[in-house]
Structure formats: C-alpha cells, structure tokens
Design a protein around this nucleic acid. Structure first.
Length: 638
DNA sequence: GAGGAAATAAACAGGT
DNA sequence: GACCTGTTTATTTCCT
C-alpha cells in the first residue's frame, strides 16, 4: 500500500540502504529486497555512505533542476542564489540540511516535487541514522551484536520517515507550496488520505516506536513503551511492555490535580511513553527533558498528527455510512405507504400552491451522531444528504448548484437512491437538471418527453404535480439560450449549449478566498477529466467545479475550442451579447442548430438565426419572435 | 430598496 | 377536441 509506494520514489542509493538485512527486514511483507550491502557493513560505514549519497543526489538533483528550469539568462542575484544552496549544504556536511534551507529550496522551487521527495527522504533517513549512531555505544563487539537490530530499526524508521515525508508533502501541497499534478509523481496522494485502517496505524506506530524501544532498552530505566493501542490490545513484543502495561493497565482517565493533556493517572501520556511519576513536577521535568523539541519528538508528533487525521477520516466515512443507513432506512419506511407522502422538507411557502395536499412535515429523527456541519467547507457543496441537511434542501429556491457553482452530477450520483425514492425536491434549478438529463443521455440530446422521463425516473419528487414542473421544464427550455432545440428525424430534441450555460451570470461564491480560488481554478479542468475521475474526486470531496465534463468528446472538444477562443476574446468584448457586458453592441449571435436532417419528414426546415444586439433580458424575451419556422414564420417583429 | 435570477402560473399557438 | 410541444408574459420569491 502506501508504504510500498513510498519506497518507489527512492533513489538507488536509498534502495540500497533500505534493502539491508535478510533477517527481519526481509521477512516483512512488501519490503523490497535488494542486493545491497551485507550485514557486515557497520553502522558508521552505512552512515558515511548515506551522507555521501545525500550529497551526491542533492547536487545531482539541484543541477538537473537548474537545467530543467530553463533559466537561460538568470539575473546575477538569481545565479548567486541558486549557487548558494549547494555551497551551504556542502559546507555543513555531514550535517543535514536545516529546515530553513529546505524551506529556502522550496520557496525557490528549484526542485521538482519528485526530487524534493527523494531528497527529503534521504535527509530524514540520514537524520535518523545519525541520531541512532550517536546514541549507540561505539563498542565494536556491541556493534556486531546490534548491527542487525540497528538496521532493522533503521528500516522501520525509514518506513516511518516515508510516511511522515508523504504527509509533509501532502501538507505542503495543501498549503499551496507544492503543486503536484495527478499522475506526475508516484506519490500516492490518494492513498494518503484513504483507507488506512487502525491496524495499519497501529503497526506503523509500533514500527516507529520499536526503534525507540530498542534504543533505550539496554540502558532502560523503568520506562516502558507500548504500542499505540487503537483497537484491540496487541500482544506486546517486549516482556517489559507487558509487565508495564499490566501495572498501568488502567484505561480510565481520572481527573488529575495537575491537569495536563499529556499527564494522567501518574503516567506520561506521550505516545509510546508511559513513564510513571510520583508527582506532577517530575512529570514536567520528564516532559521537558525526554520530549523536548528534537527529531524524535517531531517525528512522533507528525505520526500522531497522521493518526488523528486518519481517525478523522475514518470518522467521516463512518458518519457518511451512518447517514446512508439512516437514509436507506427512512426511505424504506416510507415506501410501503400506498400514497407516497412527501417529506415536506420544502418550505410551506413554496409548496403551498403546487402541493396543497402536502402532508404535515415529516422530519427525520435527530441523532447525536448526525453531523451538524460538514467536515470541510467544500464537502458542503456536494455532500451526501444528511438528516440535517435535508431540512435545508427543501425549496427549489435554495439553488445550491447555482449559488456555489457546484456540479450536480456528483451530488446526484451520490444521492441517486435517495432522490429516486425520497419525495424530496432536489436542490438544483430546473436548468441544471435539464442540462444534467441531456448530458447523461448517450447522444447528449433528449426529446422533451425523455426529459420528463428522466425527471420522473431520477426524482421521486417529480412524480407528482406533473403539470407544474413540466410546465417549468418547458418554460426553462424555451427561456434559456443554453438549451438548443434541434429538429431531426424523430422530431425535436434538446441539446445543451455549454458555452451559453457557462455564460450564465455566475453568482458570487461566498466563502474564504482560498475556497473561491480553488473553485475558480478548478473550472478549467473539467472537460479534460473523465467521468470516473470526476466521480472519484467527488467521492473524496475534492472540488471539481465543471459543467462541461460529461459531454461527448466531440461536443467537449468543440466547446473547449470555442471556450478558449472565448477566453481570449472575452476581454476584448463579447461577440454574442454576453450577460457580462450588456452595454456593448455585440455582433449578431448565431444560435447554431446542429443535427439537421435533410430528409426530415417535417416540412419545416429550421432556419434559425438570432440577432441579439439587444440587452440579454430583451434578447431572452424577443429572440423567439425572430425565429423563422418555415410555414409559420412570424414576421410581425421582423 | 434595486435589480437579477429562478420558480410558478397561465395564456396562447401550432402540430399530432 | 384532447393532448403535446413550444413560446411568452406576469408574478412572486430569493439573493446579492
């Protein structure tokens, strides 16, 4: 899984030092074996070899990146700056690169993410190795006995370092410091946030702390170490641990006179440390001495962060599962009724006219586990419907799809079963739904009746009051320019003009600037992403704000090409009366009619050409009058 | 409060 | 004539 993928990014040097023993290290599953230094290599040799490898790879990466960045004529300062980093690194050898320097490198963006990953991995491995080497007694006989153990611990540390490294890169990417395109690197970002079960976390924690246990085992005090117990108590490897765990077996935390999150029941709660203290002062002294800001504490802290993250992720998934279960059970409970009763989550104002027979409100039971707020602001845009969110889904006026510019397809796909069975009004505009219906069709075109059928098939809500919403559908089809009527053999079908749909006046997105920027930048990716990827993105609540991602390749490519043209020309003036520039005098807009069948049985041949030199509002209400429908040409406004 | 967008309702016309 | 399809207008509501 992610451990293996993390090793893929390592260089040869990394692999060589990673391969190591054929003992325990080789026995671990998934650990790549390599023909590498034998066990006779001392830790000191290994350390020096590591330092050399890091230096070599760093200079190599740096030189490559400088070549790749293509700075043909760098300014003197730039050149000087770019040279400063390796020089300073060379000066500090065999020390590791300081965080400041690393940050400087990051800010300069000299290295690619892959190179950074390799470099950071080697750096952290070297750091850990140095720590281990410095702490171990330098007796030859002891080394011989401990080399395998050290290498095992080193491998375990490496594993942890890769985890931490990936997490660090992920954080960097989240903070915008790194931009890693999908597929650009072997870094499994997806796996970082997915599916790390508690058992794996426990194993990871054991591996991280195991080295620490081994390290301090020889000169151990009465401090015992126990693996992070996330689920069931695992049999401790070390008898000391077992003994210690039994002596401090209490799992209940009681309020301590000296309150400290890391101190409870007379035991240090630092992960992996369960040192017992008589009083709070000794604990504080221990905390400052043993858990000071050093590499080990930092690594443990990062691991703890990852543990928390994974637990939160797991919690989110379980919440989602719970909601699905609740939704399912609720829908089931409403199904047996002879006449489907509406949930009446729609506001009474809206339904008062269209559904006078609406039943009294039927609210879902509220449970403490029901998430009252989405985990992330973005997840709110297309989250799985929750019991609470149902109450806000209500009226069609809550046009989330318009307000947040959200894609409705992930939402519909995610809540498909719900919409199909629950008499709840979908929180999308008619236009969005019509467009979705059309785009879901194989040929991206539907007759009016097929649109009706899609509505009734997909949404239980539209299985009643047909006259009302069908009228609304027709009204929207005629009103919005984004829906193009096309005549063919079968009759008239409706297609979607994506450009027109995109041009609809976007409502301002409220939220943090980062959110807005994220949404805006995501707009450009839609057409190039497959539906599967989009679904995957949606499943992970990764925003994918697109409205042109589902169309046929032909339509998409056409739309993209035109959109590119539009983007280039938009700044200089809209060519067809965009809503964004109503004051201009645009060129006449052609409402393109495609798919004309010359052998159409109908006597009408569409010769539609819209002149829209007027303001959009006027255009909307007058364009139809300019339509020339063969025999029924309306020339009264000609 | 103004204005835009959407929903809703209704009238009307043409075609089947 | 009933029904469907399509267009248009008016009104209301929500939101910025």
């Amino acid at each position: 899984m992610m451990q293996e993928s993390g090793t893929e990014a390592t260089s040869d040097g990394q692999a060589s030092q990673n391969g190591g023993t054929s003992m325990e290290g080789g026995s671990r599953e998934g650990r790549p074996k390599s023909a590498t230094p034998s066990v006779e290599v001392t830790a000191a040799d290994l350390l020096h070899f590591q330092q050399h490898q890091v230096e070599q790879s760093f200079f190599t990466l740096l030189s490559q990146s400088q070549q790749n960045t293509g700075r043909k004529s760098p300014k003197p300062n730039d050149k000087q700056q770019s040279l400063q980093v390796p020089v300073s690194v060379a000066m500090m050898t065999p020390q590791v690169i300081t965080p400041q320097q690393m940050q400087q490198i990051l800010q300069q963006q000299v290295l690619s993410p892959q190179q950074l990953q390799v470099l950071l991995q080697q750096q952290q491995a070297l750091m850990l190795q140095q720590v281990m080497y410095n702490r171990q007694p330098h007796h030859e006989s002891f080394q011989e006995q401990q080399v395998s153990a050290q290498q095992l611990a080193f491998q375990q540390q490496l594993l942890q370092v890769q985890q931490v490294q990936q997490q660090h890169l992920l954080n960097l990417q989240r903070q915008g410091l790194l931009t890693i395109q999908p597929g650009q690197t072997g870094l499994p970002l997806h796996s970082l946030t997915q599916g790390m079960i508690p058992a794996e976390l426990q194993q990871l924690w054991k591996e991280v702390t195991n080295a620490h246990v081994k390290e301090e085992h020889n000169n151990s005090s009465n401090n015992g170490h126990r693996g992070l117990d996330l689920s069931s108590p695992a049999p401790p490897k070390n008898p000391l641990l077992n003994q210690h765990a039994s002596t401090n077996g209490s799992t209940l935390e009681e309020p301590s006179p000296h309150s400290h999150p890391l101190y409870g029941h007379g035991v240090c709660k630092w992960p992996g440390c369960e040192a017992v203290f008589e009083d709070f002062q000794s604990f504080l002294k221990h905390l400052n001495n043993e858990h000071a800001l050093d590499d080990r504490s930092t690594a443990q802290c990062r691991v703890q962060m990852q543990v928390v993250q994974q637990l939160e992720l797991q919690l989110a998934k379980d919440k989602e599962r719970l909601q699905a279960m609740m939704t399912h059970l609720h829908v089931k409970s409403t199904e047996p009724k002879a006449t489907p009763q509406p949930l009446n989550l729609v506001s009474s104002v809206t339904l008062s006219k269209s559904a006078p027979e609406a039943s009294p409100p039927l609210s879902l039971p509220q449970t403490p586990t029901t998430p009252t707020a989405p985990l992330t602001p973005l997840s709110q845009t297309h989250s799985v419907i929750t019991a609470n969110s149902l109450h806000s889904v209500g009226p069609m006026r809550r046009r989330y799809s318009e307000k947040y510019n959200m894609p409705i397809s992930p939402d519909i796909s995610q809540n498909k079963e719900f919409y199909m069975n629950a008499d709840v009004r979908p929180p999308f505009t008619y236009a969005s739904l019509i467009r979705q219906a059309i785009l879901e069709s194989p040929e991206k075109q539907l007759t009016l009746n097929e649109i009706y059928n899609w509505f009734t098939r997909m949404f239980a809500y539209f299985r009643r009051n047909a006259a009302t919403w069908k009228n609304a559908v027709r009204h929207n089809l005629s009103l919005h320019k984004c829906f193009v009527r096309v005549e063919n053999v079968k009759g008239a079908v409706w297609t979607v003009d994506e450009i027109e749909f995109q041009k609809r006046r976007p409502q301002k997105i409220s939220g943090s600037p980062a959110l807005v920027k994220n949404i805006q930048t995501s707009l450009g990716y839609g057409p190039t992403l497959s539906a599967a990827f989009q679904a995957s993105m949606a499943e992970n609540n990764i925003p994918l704000y697109t409205t042109a991602s589902i169309g046929s390749p032909t339509l998409n490519s056409l739309a993209n090409a035109i959109r590119e043209e539009m983007n280039g020309a938009m700044d200089h003036g809209n060519s067809n009366g965009s809503d964004s520039s109503p004051g201009r005098s645009p060129l006449p807009a052609m409402k393109v009619v495609v798919g004309l069948e010359t052998a159409a049985p109908r006597s009408l041949v569409i010769k539609e050409c819209l002149l829209s030199c007027l303001k959009p509002k006027i255009i909307q209400r007058t364009r139809h009058r300019f339509q020339m429908w063969g025999q029924t040409t309306d020339v009264q406004h000609g």
